[in-house]
Design a protein around this nucleic acid. Sequence first.
RNA 1: GCCUCAUUAGCUCAGUUGGUUAGAGCGACGGACUGUUAAUCCGCAGGUCCCAGGUUCGAGUCCUGGAUGGGGCGCCA
Length: 506
Amino acid sequence: MKTYIKDLSTHKDSVVTLQGWVQNKRESKALIFIILRDGSGFCQCIADLAVLGDIKFAEASKLGQESSISITGKVVEDTRQIGGFEIHVQSIDIVQNCADYPIANKEHGIEFLMDQRHLWLRSKRQWAIMRVRNTVIFSIHKFFQKEGFVQMDAPIFTGNAAEGTTDLFETDFYGQPAYLSQSGQLYGEAMAMAMGKIYTFGPTFRSEKSKTRRHLSEFWMIEPEMAFHDIYDNMDCIEDFVRYVVKEVLENCKVELELLERDTTILEKTVEPFIRLTYDNAVAIIKGEQEVEGQTTIAVLEQDLADTKANIASLKADIAEREEKIAAGGMKKGQVNFNLNTIDKNKNQIKQLEEDERNIPQWLDSAKNFTYGEDFGGSDETVLTRMFDVPVMVYDWPHEVKAFYLKRNPENPRFARGVDMLAPEGYGEVVGGGERETNEQMLIEKINEHKLPMEVFEWYLDLRRFGSVPHAGFGLGLERLIAWICKLPHVRETIPFPRMYGRLNP
RNA sequence: GCCUCAUUAGCUCAGUUGGUUAGAGCGACGGACUGUUAAUCCGCAGGUCCCAGGUUCGAGUCCUGGAUGGGGCGCCA
């Protein structure tokens, strides 16, 4: 039976052997501090010259970052350490000593890190994110299984587009064109008529040339579909589902969230009811015509812009002050380095803030001039969710802007019964779904309206000919959910090897 | 497809109005020192200033075009 770092608390004061990699190392004449990582966690190991002897100690002191080793030593409680324990080393076996590991313990640029993705996955932040991803995936399955859903796999090769507008990746399927799946939903509907409640969990491909923090070319989507469910049942399901997953992460990923420095207040708020708004209502809020808790979006955004400007000014003042101090001289070298590093960090922050400074006025403009009847843009979602601290569900959309398969509101046919769930803190659309059209004639009209080839939808129309029932479902973007839960600046860090516009390797 | 910002040492960045031999920190390497938390201190090495044209007595700096990357819009989860 092997021992892992996560289980050290059960081995207090006994001697164990750990196998792993040198994450970092500090050395002196008689002591070496090795931060060992074994995939399950991180642990400081102290090697003493008096214990190891000259030869072994010299070997250990030469260990490069990410060298692979096996360490035997005593487990000692030490509250200063991450896991609360450290190892007093008795012996070290070197599996491989390596040198010149490319990723240093310092700030790197995103392009460099993405090129080193195969190695970057080993670093602490990425370790934490991948473990949150694992917990999210596992809890998604747990939720649907406990609710009686049947998991199904939709095909990845498809002969048609579910929604004509999106760009598809074309491949060659024995001489005829085929497209990589951009949604398993239509197949999910067929399966729901067989199983009652189903969910898909699979990869999705979209060749949108989008370079934003929310887009990947290959991402994972979860698509439940439920027979005898309407739009309101659907919203209940979305809410229960998202609440459950967030709760599971909060319970099982404490160490990871702490490592990511995630403020969990907003996540804990998901126990409260989510906000439900009709499209009309949401538009009024976006345009600043309707207040939320005494404030309009316009006022909030203008305040955000003012805050951003003030932040930039104070960071610049801080830099100037530090530069002045350094120039004045008399500072120790260590202090100078510290100040230089801080200046670098501030400059990076200023760059990000300056992008906000450029973007916020655009968003403000777009919100003020929002045309009723249009779909929300990314910035409109940001503006809307900025007003609330729980997820927002917007439903009953103008039918023209939504997919052909959505049901019309029988009381007001201008609206289609779609629903989008927008995550707080500016993360925007995480879920899109709705109640499906059950009337065959309405569907045929819509397919024609969208200029889609009727023949490939014949099988889909069969679902309306044989025992058609009200049904609803939604699609959840796994990476967007993880990005929000971890509060990451970009979805690219939520998937082991991201595929996006301009990025196919490694 | 459109808009915008950027590209200088292995990495993160300075480089003033165009002006002599392009700088710093981190990392690497050599040494000193220490229950250290990105330790600290001393020393040393390290450059096709993204590419191609142009303006100029003179270009890292200005202009034109291109490549690559960041961010935003459209589109979407």
